[in-house]
Design a protein around this nucleic acid. Structure first.
Length: 371
DNA sequence: CAGTCGTGGCA
DNA sequence: TTGCCAAGACT
C-alpha cells in the first residue's frame, strides 16, 4: 500500500463547504469580517452565551456585554454582581459566574491572554469540550472540531449514520474530525454550524441549497429529515426488588430518605432490598427488612421504567406494633394524611398505591398507569 | 451516570 | 394558548 493519504480525499468536501461559506456566510456580531482575525475574547464570550441559547437571543446581550467590558482584564476586575446583572434574562446564570471566574483565572494564570489549545481552554470554568474546540478553532485557527447539535445533524446525514444517538456521538465526532481541514478550520467550524442552522434544518432540510447535496448519503437515501436517529428505546434490563411496607396499628407507615447522590437522590422511599437482575426469594429478601416480623407478600407487583432499566418491585407488608420504632436511624413513620407532604418519586407513589389497594379489597381492576 | 440549570420558539 | 424541549457544562 502507498503511504496513507486519506486526507486528500477529505479536501473536496471541505473545500466545497468553505466555498459555500464564503458565499453565504452570515454576519453575526461576534464574527470577524472575511479574512480578518477574530477577537478571541469576543469569540469566547459569544460561545458561552450561545450555549443552549439562540443566536437571536444572544445578539443584544453580546453587544451590551462587550460595550461594558471590552477586555478580559476589565471583566476580571468587575464585581460579580454586575456581571450577573448583565446576564439577567439570558438564563443559565452559572455561565456568568463561570465566565467571571474564568476571566480572573486568565489574568492570574495566563497573563490576561486566553490560551490557544483545546486542553488548556478546557481547564477554565464554563469551557467544556464543545466550547474549547470552538474557541481554539475560531479564535486561534487550531485544527479543532467543535461538535454541537448542528454538526451532529449535518454529519449524521452526510454519512447516513443510522446508529442512534447518543451512542453514535463518538462516531459522529470522529467523522467530523476527519472532515476538518488543516487550513481555515475556524471557518470550517462556523460553516458546519451555519449549514446546520440555515440549510440542513431539523425537520425540513433545504437540500436544494446544500453544497453537499450530491455527496450526501442521507439525501441519496431519500429521507434526510429522519436523521439523526435519536435514542430509540435502548434495551433496558429488568431489575427486581422487594419493598417493605411497614404499617403501625395507628396507620403510620415507615419511609426513609434515599442517599443524596445517585438515582432518585434525596427523595423519600419505601425501604427496599437492592434492585438486582435476579428475582428475590422472600426469605432471602427479609434479611434486608427494616423490622422483623411476619411479612406477607402482597399480590401483584409495581413496575416502573427508568432511563436505564425496568424495575419490578414486589411489596411485602407487616403490621407493626403501635410502639414500633424504626430500627437504628433507618426511617420515619408517616401518617397516611401526610403522605402528600413527602417527596415521593413516581415509583414510590405506585408502591403506596399498591399497598393501599391491597388493604382495600374493593379493587376490581387497576387503572392503566402512565409510565 | 442522571439531574439540574432558564429561556424562548414552535407544534 | 399551553406544554414540550433543546444537546452545553457541571455535579
Amino acid at each position: 500500500m502507498p503511504t496513507p493519504c486519506a486526507r486528500l480525499s477529505e479536501h473536496p468536501l471541505a473545500e466545497q463547504l468553505l466555498a459555500w461559506y464564503d458565499r453565504a456566510r452570515r454576519q453575526l456580531p461576534w464574527r470577524a469580517a472575511p479574512g480578518m482575525a477574530a477577537d478571541p475574547y469576543a469569540v469566547w464570550i459569544s460561545e458561552i452565551m450561545l450555549q443552549q441559547t439562540t443566536v437571536a437571543a444572544v445578539g443584544p446581550y453580546f453587544r451590551a456585554f462587550l460595550g461594558r467590558w471590552p477586555s478580559i482584564e476589565s471583566l476580571a476586575a468587575a464585581p460579580l454582581d454586575d456581571v450577573l446583572h448583565a446576564w439577567q434574562g439570558l438564563g443559565y446564570y452559572a455561565r456568568a459566574r463561570n465566565l467571571h471566574a474564568a476571566a480572573q483565572a486568565v489574568v492570574r494564570d495566563w497573563h490576561g491572554r486566553l490560551p490557544h489549545l483545546e486542553a488548556e481552554l478546557r481547564t477554565l470554568p464554563g469551557i467544556g469540550a464543545y466550547t474549547a474546540a470552538a474557541v481554539a478553532a475560531i479564535a486561534f485557527g487550531e485544527r479543532a472540531t467543535p461538535v454541537d447539535g448542528n454538526v451532529v445533524r449535518v454529519v449524521a446525514r452526510l454519512f447516513a449514520i443510522a446508529k442512534p444517538l447518543p451512542a453514535a456521538r463518538r462516531l459522529i465526532e470522529a467523522q467530523a474530525r476527519q472532515l476538518t481541514p488543516a487550513q481555515r478550520s475556524g471557518d470550517f467550524a462556523q460553516a458546519m454550524m451555519d449549514l446546520g442552522a440555515t440549510v440542513c434544518l431539523p425537520r425540513q432540510p433545504l437540500c436544494r441549497l446544500c453544497p453537499w447535496r450530491d455527496a450526501c448519503l442521507g439525501h441519496a437515501g431519500g429521507r434526510p429529515e429522519a436523521l439523526p436517529v435519536r435514542a430509540a428505546k435502548p434495551e433496558r434490563p429488568t431489575r427486581h426488588g422487594v419493598a417493605f411496607w411497614a404499617e403501625r396499628a395507628d396507620g403510620a407507615v415507615l419511609f426513609r430518605r434515599r442517599p443524596e447522590k445517585g438515582l432518585l437522590g434525596g427523595m423519600m422511599e419505601v425501604p427496599s432490598t437492592d434492585w438486582r437482575a435476579q428475582p428475590w426469594e422472600l426469605t432471602e429478601a427479609l434479611v434486608a427488612a427494616p423490622l422483623t416480623g411476619a411479612w406477607r407478600l402482597l399480590p401483584g407487583a409495581v413496575e416502573h421504567t427508568f432511563t436505564h432499566f425496568h424495575l419490578v418491585l414486589q411489596v411485602v407488608k407487616l403490621i407493626a406494633p403501635a410502639t414500633a420504632e424504626a430500627s437504628g436511624a433507618v426511617g420515619l413513620w408517616v401518617a397516611p394524611a401526610r403522605f402528600t407532604d413527602l417527596a415521593l418519586p413516581t415509583l414510590m407513589r405506585k408502591a403506596v398505591r399498591q399497598a393501599q389497594a391491597a388493604a382495600a379489597p374493593v379493587a376490581t381492576h387497576r387503572r392503566s398507569r402512565a409510565t
